[in-house]
Each structure stands twice: as structure tokens, then as C-alpha cells.
Design a binder for these strands. Structure first.
Lengths: 116, 116
DNA sequence: AATATAGTTGAACAACTGTTCATTTGTGAT
DNA sequence: ATCACAAATGAACAGTTGTTCAACTATATT
């Protein structure tokens, strides 16, 4: 960490010094951007949207998104790692469901931004 | 579009048929994931956070983030293209400010998710 | 007019990401 | 036990992304 470096002096050192203490911890910022990274993919957004409607198994999600089961499974793993969905095996199938009550709200707010 | 394809049959065709009409337009989904893609980078998150505190010029942002002006400028361009910040030339410097009232709210909600 | 400074830009490069393909695992049905 | 099927996995590949570097533009100062 801290391996990059500037190539210039501050122009308004007072502003920099005022803002600096209000910056969140580097660690937190990376967690935050990692979260958005997970949302920043068309396939994963579709999966989240679908699961908001109903829990579904991998095969049905693959049919709905018109993709291979493998591709869907890979992306579900990313969502699972990010704790956004949870998996539950039932009979032959693995059913996925949303596992975070913030996701819906964030999707809605983001949609407001996109739609205006 | 629609160039991918499934490798399986639906397992619960009724669920798929129930969910499908509620899926947003492909176009909208891509705009949405593009928005999150912009937020999904540590440098850009830092820039947005800093600009939430105060408008700042490129050089000061570079000092604050400990990066080169060039790297900062490149990322500011991404944020400008996404309409999240706006630039205003004043004297020798170009001052950047937030240009979207949704951003703060979305950042806060995402922070809730990350922090729990 | 000449110089210095702030910011932008494009090419290049390494690092990362998403899908495909082939294979494997685990479970239910015969 | 064997077979069929749903899902997971790992390697490989192409496409994308972020930073660096060098060059360039535009403006302010002398």
C-alpha cells in the first residue's frame, strides 16, 4: 500500500488538509469498490434482478438469461462470495436466493440515476 | 445481442415464465451495470468521496490520493463521461465537483452493506 | 514574446475479467 | 451398483481496464 506517488505540489494545501482527515480508511474504500465491482457486470445484475422476483435454480437461471449453466454458475459463485446470494440444495437442484436487503434499495437508487 | 445460448432445458418452466416478463430491458440493464462499473474502482471511489467534501482541482486531488496528475486526470474523465462530476476552469486550474445527488446516497447505502 | 505551470491525451504494457470447453463431483432414479 | 443429470470447477483464451510515460495544449506570469 502507498506505493504510488504524486508528481506535484498541492495548490491549495488548506483544502487538502481539510479534506484528508475526512477520507475513510483505505481498507474500507477497497471493500466499497469491491462491492461495486460485483454489481458492475451485466450478467450479475440480471441474476440479482431475477432472484429479486423469485428464488431459482441454476438451470432455470441459465434458460432465463440464455446462457450456459457453467457461465451462470461461475457468476453465482462471485455473488455468493460477495454474500449477495445464498444457495440451498433441494432434491437434484441448487436454489439461489437474494441474501442482502440492501441490494434492492441500491438497485432502485442506481436506476433513478440511470433513468433521468 | 442475444448471441449467447443455453445448454439446458428449464426445470421449472412456470417460474421462468413468471419471472421473464418482469426483467427490465436489456438496454437498461447495461446502463445500470455500466454505472456500477464506474463506481467499482478504488481510485474513482476516493475521488468521489473527496469531492463530496469539497470541490478540488486536479493537482490537489493528485496530492490527496498520492497519485500522478495524469492518472487522476484519466479517472476524472471517466467520472465526467458518466456524468458523476463536472469540471470548471478557474484561473490556472480546473476545479471538479460532484454532479449527481444520487451518488452520496448510494455510497451511504453501499457502506451499510459493507460495514455489517 | 518567452517561459513556466496545470491539465489533457494517446500509446503501451501488465493485470484482471468473463465466457467457453472439458472434466469432475455429488445426488437421485433405475 | 449403475446410470443420468444438475451443478461446480479449472485451464485457457480474448477482451477490457488502470497506470505509466512522453508528448502536447492552453493559459498565466514575467
Amino acid at each position: 500500500m502507498e506505493n504510488k506517488r504524486t508528481d506535484c505540489e498541492a495548490i491549495n494545501i488548506d483544502i487538502v488538509n481539510k479534506v484528508r482527515p475526512n477520507m475513510p480508511e483505505m481498507n474500507l474504500l477497497y471493500e466499497l469498490s469491491d462491492f461495486f465491482k460485483v454489481m458492475g457486470d451485466g450478467t450479475r445484475i440480471q441474476l440479482l434482478w431475477a432472484l429479486e422476483e423469485s428464488e431459482m435454480c441454476v438451470g432455470d437461471l441459465a434458460v432465463l438469461l440464455n446462457m450456459t449453466k457453467s457461465a451462470v454458475s461461475h457468476q453465482l459463485k462471485v455473488l455468493r462470495t460477495a454474500k449477495l446470494v445464498r444457495a440451498q440444495k433441494r432434491g437434484k437442484n441448487v436454489y439461489y436466493a437474494l441474501d442482502d436487503h440492501h441490494v434492492k434499495h441500491i438497485l432502485e437508487k442506481a436506476l433513478e440515476h440511470v433513468c433521468e
